[in-house]
Nucleic acid binder design. Sequence first.
DNA 1: TCGACTTTGTGCATCACTTCACAAAGGCAC
DNA 2: GTGCCTTTGTGAAGTGATGCACAAAGTCGA
Lengths: 232, 232
Amino acid sequence: MIRRTPQQPRERGIPDATVARLPLYLRALNGLAERAVATVSSEDLAVAAGVNSAKLRKDLSHLGSYGTRGVGYDVQYLIYQISRELGLTQDWAVAIVGVGNLGRALANYGGFVSRGFRVAGLLDADPEVVGDHIAGLVVEHSDELESVIAKRGVSIVVIATPATAAQAVCDRVIASGVTSILNFAPVVLTVPAGVDVRKVDLSIELQILAFHEQRKVNGGPVMGEEWAGEVS
Amino acid sequence: MIRRTPQQPRERGIPDATVARLPLYLRALNGLAERAVATVSSEDLAVAAGVNSAKLRKDLSHLGSYGTRGVGYDVQYLIYQISRELGLTQDWAVAIVGVGNLGRALANYGGFVSRGFRVAGLLDADPEVVGDHIAGLVVEHSDELESVIAKRGVSIVVIATPATAAQAVCDRVIASGVTSILNFAPVVLTVPAGVDVRKVDLSIELQILAFHEQRKVNGGPVMGEEWAGEVS
DNA sequence: TCGACTTTGTGCATCACTTCACAAAGGCAC
DNA sequence: GTGCCTTTGTGAAGTGATGCACAAAGTCGA
Ligand SMILES: NC(=O)c1ccc[n+]([C@@H]2O[C@H](COP(=O)([O-])OP(=O)(O)OC[C@H]3O[C@@H](n4cnc5c(N)ncnc54)[C@H](O)[C@@H]3O)[C@@H](O)[C@H]2O)c1
Ligand SMILES: NC(=O)c1ccc[n+]([C@@H]2O[C@H](COP(=O)([O-])OP(=O)(O)OC[C@H]3O[C@@H](n4cnc5c(N)ncnc54)[C@H](O)[C@@H]3O)[C@@H](O)[C@H]2O)c1
């Protein structure tokens, strides 16, 4: 995406791999804070987050020098620094498009609100669903998509529609100025540069598990007849 | 996990990054097959799957030499080969533990069954929930976990319980011989070697989006007062 | 005040994955 | 057949992430 000149060594740039782990550290730190732990070593925090301690230290070093040698990291302070880096000190208005099985589960989920994400809109195309009250919100018709995004200052959209509708919804959302999308529909969304799409595909996760499971059982795919069939 | 001697160049081993993309190719191929496309070039398939064509070719080369130079890949044949490699030619019994908002959405989701994954058990600890009929199944009490796994030949377990219950469920599941787990609870599960855990954490995905979103708006986290506070 | 001890932050070697670029393979037209 | 044209499969170079290992920094007890 964002290309930078090889000159400046990535001004305040944090590697993607690191960014993806920061929320993990944050979760572990919150766990420690609840147990009233004041400081933590990279070793202990690494164990709690399920990573290597050298990796943890290198990740944190990208944010700045927030540790104290001989002691470790101040839990509260580190929570604050990571939250700030991730942009969790402000809160983000999220809209969910597609209020079916999955959309409802997401809307009812408390884990988002607790992290500065506020569900500010629920939209669906089905007149049966429009008007339903879910998690204190009323489902609106997806015709209102643009106005809901504008009026409520939505900056992140979650797409939980069927795959066939996802690209169209995506296009409209981007036209409304949104540049951050979380997609649950099993399709590759085409978006212009500058728009971030992250996808969650449960089916893919299961398929990866199946791959490894098969290896454990067989030592490989369908043994015996492998390579047998020419393509005719 | 599985360490191999540097001698043998990874006997039939497929890089993890490749395995993670195979389901993507499979989905793209199924789309082509529905539109009755007989053959496809690496270039076209790469576009459909949203990847670089060189990467696609290298990925497929790990499975074998299934293309025809000057022509491309036979769609049906490639679908078969990838399915076989992923272990989707057999079907897998899946149990879902924790039938709350998310567990229900998963149970009702048709996208699993279509890929050789059969939901063979729904388990919950709440007596209110036990006995409910969902997607043609009756929710059973989680006390029955071990016997359900054994009787129905469950090889993949989905954990959709609250975070606090996840590790305990995980331990019991592993004790029953399951070695493939898909975890939705926001905790790091501790498992013995040989057990595969994949996790899906929606909250993490949103946090990563927020990070990038913040960069777009500000060019960085909370400008102005940054680095201001010493840790006291 | 000092010295022993702990733990960070990072240079460096290594590993894994990506991308380029092209020779070899094969189809197809004539 | 023969030769052109397309597309694969893959060496090799490039990029980024990982993990080791250790010097530097800081704490704390005596
Ligand atoms: N439920 C799951 O566990 C699960 C798992 C993996 C992937 N998914 C994917 O998530 C998506 C949603 O799944 P689901 O089970 O909730 O499906 P669902 O059919 O229950 O819900 C989809 C909802 O989207 C609405 N919709 C359709 N077109 C729309 C449009 N243009 N604008 C706004 N809303 C629209 C429908 O009215 C419906 O309410 C699907 O793409 C599915 O493949 C779901
Ligand atoms: N709903 C979402 O969109 C969402 C999003 C991200 C993460 N999650 C995570 O997924 C998990 C489930 O979320 P949810 O919204 O469905 O929660 P939920 O509270 O609606 O459902 C949890 C279910 O698990 C059952 N349960 C509790 N302890 C159990 C045990 N020991 N054995 C079996 N069942 C048990 C409860 O009875 C309940 O039915 C949570 O860990 C949550 O953090 C959910």
